[in-house]
Design a protein around this nucleic acid. Sequence first.
DNA 1: CAATATCAATTGATTAGTCAAGCTAGAAGA
DNA 2: TCTTCTAGCTTGACTAATCAATTGATATTG
Lengths: 147, 147
Amino acid sequence: MRNNTLGSLIWLRLMRFTNQSNQMSNDFLKRFDLTTAQFDVLMQISIYQPLTQMELAEKVTVTQGGISRMLVRLENEGYIVRKQDWKTKTISLTAKAVSILEQAMPEQLAFQTSFFDDVLNEEEQTTLYTLMTRVHKHSQKKELPPE
Amino acid sequence: MRNNTLGSLIWLRLMRFTNQSNQMSNDFLKRFDLTTAQFDVLMQISIYQPLTQMELAEKVTVTQGGISRMLVRLENEGYIVRKQDWKTKTISLTAKAVSILEQAMPEQLAFQTSFFDDVLNEEEQTTLYTLMTRVHKHSQKKELPPE
DNA sequence: CAATATCAATTGATTAGTCAAGCTAGAAGA
DNA sequence: TCTTCTAGCTTGACTAATCAATTGATATTG
């Protein structure tokens, strides 16, 4: 029954790895009272602020509904402010979020980096990045096969 | 503010890709009335059945709580049967699940494979698989950095 | 034999997300 | 000006997961 292709093995590997490292990252970020998803969203806001919810949703590849709920939580925690600007809501970070990010960002970057630095040299990392970039870019313009 | 390392770029790429391809896979599997997570679980059961919930949880890297809820759904849909064996519950597939898997498995495998076959040659796929395997295996024995 | 320890599975509260239907406010047409 | 359209956001119902506390069933100990 198991006639796996190389591609399907890569796929599973990627899924298991991201799943696992995501959990570890959640664990790590507990010291800053953040989850990986929240950190990701706050980072994107900090880079592109001020921006609308639609724009943000696209950056983190989440639906409008998903970003709406996430922002409600972040707003309740006092990390962001939204103000109705015209018919759009513009998002920006609070001082609290800025100061937490300042601490958390370098540490989280180092944490992410350590997954690769520990086992791959620079050349191998460049190769991995190049290959994954090609795969990712391709997937973005991929169509669903016909039924 | 953006002094990203190569590792952190790889990390983000992996997260975005798996996130996206997972959604596409969900979309694809709708024709079989399955989600990616359900397909994954059913596949593992089909390979290792009969097995306990703990064992299954480990195979798909989910907590006991997570697998418990997932199995309730799969049981309600008539895909699996659980029977209390001693103090453990043993899981096995129903005929319905077997026949659906028989159809869905080759198609899902082809679908996964196409993410890579379309843009990477055999050698590149082998390289990608090797690198990711090293990264994944390393992450499994990784410890959380001290506070 | 009754009390307790142990291990598997379930469950309540929460985060995170999807889809699709419903609001809401400003823009445009009659 | 008043209705209609539309873009952006929210929300209800659901899948999927986590953690931590609880339940259930057997095994062990006093």
